Amino acid sequence: MKREQLDTITWTTRAAARTAIFDFIESWYNLHRLHSSLGYLSHADHETTLAA
């Protein structure tokens, strides 16, 4: 997770922290991280290529 988010947010429960981590992974990390199984494309780029 981005350092700015970790330094500025205090979660009141483990569930809230878990939700924030899940949202980060699903909204940024998996969409932008390059994957060797996709020809070193991100998921978003791979989906765009398939749709074209």
Rank of each mutant, 00 (worst) to 15 (best):
H35Y: 10
I25R: 06
Y40S: 11
E26V: 05
I21Y: 05
I21T: 05
K2C: 07
E4T: 09
L31R: 06
T19H: 12
A44G: 02
D45H: 08
E47T: 05
S27G: 01
L38M: 14
S42F: 04
A51N: 12
A52R: 15
H35S: 03
I25P: 00
T19R: 15
R14S: 08
I25N: 06
L6R: 15
E4V: 09
T10W: 13
D7W: 05
G39P: 00
T48C: 05
S42G: 07
A17K: 06
T49S: 15
Y40D: 10
A17V: 01
I25C: 11
R33D: 02
A44Y: 09
E4L: 03
G39Y: 03
E4M: 03
I21M: 09
D45A: 14
A52D: 12
A15Q: 11
L31C: 02
Y40G: 01
A15P: 00
T12G: 13
I25K: 06
I9T: 15
E26G: 06
R14Y: 11
I21D: 06
D45E: 15
D45Y: 03
L41V: 00
D45N: 12
Y40Q: 10
L34Q: 06
A16I: 01
T12I: 05
G39A: 04
T10G: 04
A16K: 12
E47H: 06
F24K: 03
Y40R: 10
D23H: 09
S42K: 03
E26Y: 07
R33S: 02
E26N: 11
L50P: 04
T49A: 15
F24N: 03
H32W: 03
S27I: 00
A17M: 08
D45R: 12
A51D: 09
R14F: 07
T49L: 15
A52F: 09
R33V: 06
A51V: 03
S27Y: 00
D7P: 01
S36F: 00
D45Q: 13
W11K: 05
L50N: 08
A52Q: 15
W28E: 14
L34D: 02
M1K: 05
L6T: 12
N30I: 11
S37A: 10
L6Q: 15
A52C: 06
N30Q: 11
Y40F: 08
T48I: 11
E4G: 01
K2S: 12
L41A: 10
T13L: 01
E47N: 09
E4I: 10
Q5H: 11
A52N: 14
S27M: 01
T12F: 09
A52G: 12
A15W: 05
W11L: 04
L31P: 06
Y29D: 01
L34N: 01
A15V: 04
D23T: 10
L41M: 15
E4F: 05
D45P: 04
T48F: 08
L38K: 13
A20I: 00
